[in-house]
Design a protein around this nucleic acid. Sequence first.
DNA 1: TAATTCCTGACTAAATTACTCAGGAATTTA
DNA 2: TAAATTCCTGAGTAATTTAGTCAGGAATTA
Lengths: 156, 156
Amino acid sequence: MKLSTKGRYAVTAMMDIALHEKVGPVTLADISQCQGISLSYLEQLFSKLRKNGLVKGVRGPGGGYRLAKPASDISVADIIDSVDEKLDLTKCGGKGNCNQGKKCITHQLWFDLTCDLHRYLGGIKLDQYVNRPQISELVKKQDVQYGRFLNRRTAA
Amino acid sequence: MKLSTKGRYAVTAMMDIALHEKVGPVTLADISQCQGISLSYLEQLFSKLRKNGLVKGVRGPGGGYRLAKPASDISVADIIDSVDEKLDLTKCGGKGNCNQGKKCITHQLWFDLTCDLHRYLGGIKLDQYVNRPQISELVKKQDVQYGRFLNRRTAA
DNA sequence: TAATTCCTGACTAAATTACTCAGGAATTTA
DNA sequence: TAAATTCCTGAGTAATTTAGTCAGGAATTA
């Protein structure tokens, strides 16, 4: 069982934006460089994140992306669902027709697990990690290393 | 986030064997037909399950596969780990070198989640499902439908 | 007007997944 | 002992998904 980079990249990028919410919009170019993710690929992911109402794009110089709602309202499940198709472990997509129209003998197992996962990831909100000292410490070092936000006035 | 058919097939097949433990060894040909899984593919998976000590092969007519230890000692995590490589959601395989030798800003998140998943799936043992009335009902119907085990003496 | 940034769609390379094929080895039954 | 049955192995392949590229347009700011 694996998580595709799609989901991982999206969560990482969203976390980056959440961590800089007070500074202002974050450009994909910055995220690309700091997190080591291809720019064009990020653009594809953010197209989906935007369509799912998780981020807002701000064009022009000084622009970038910002969260479309408070970090406390955005869960990891929201993000993964947006980019990675559905978070589902059943063969049948939950329909119960996995073996010749009937439920296969492991249907219930995967169905239950999918529900639990969803509940678990739905309970993890972005702000929980933003406020962790270890994480904000990490991102502060990264910002210095890459010289981010040097000539920017702090946003209101 | 998805489960590959590899993991799903393996758990389904193991469940099939566990459900027929009292009847005797189960052939891959039977599993292939009833569960709709390619025979050659099953053989590949069972090679791994055998190497990981989950099943024993019995050759010759009347042979098949049986569990190498009690169903209460085999967890879903054991099975998935055997065939599906490792159950890991981090980018770095848990090493913590996901971003230029350091931990990426979401490392802890995926690491925690991987641990939880492992604990969860490790707690689900085959026998829990074998004893469910819905499941044994389902498999009984299947057996009739495919005419399984018709000329077989019940094993001691 | 020039620079910056988002935004879109079509294309492609690489990796993985799922599966096939061919044949050998052990065991049982007749 | 011969034939049938089943496990067992490894090499090869088709299909799908993943990850990424490329080209160019639209909005905004300075």
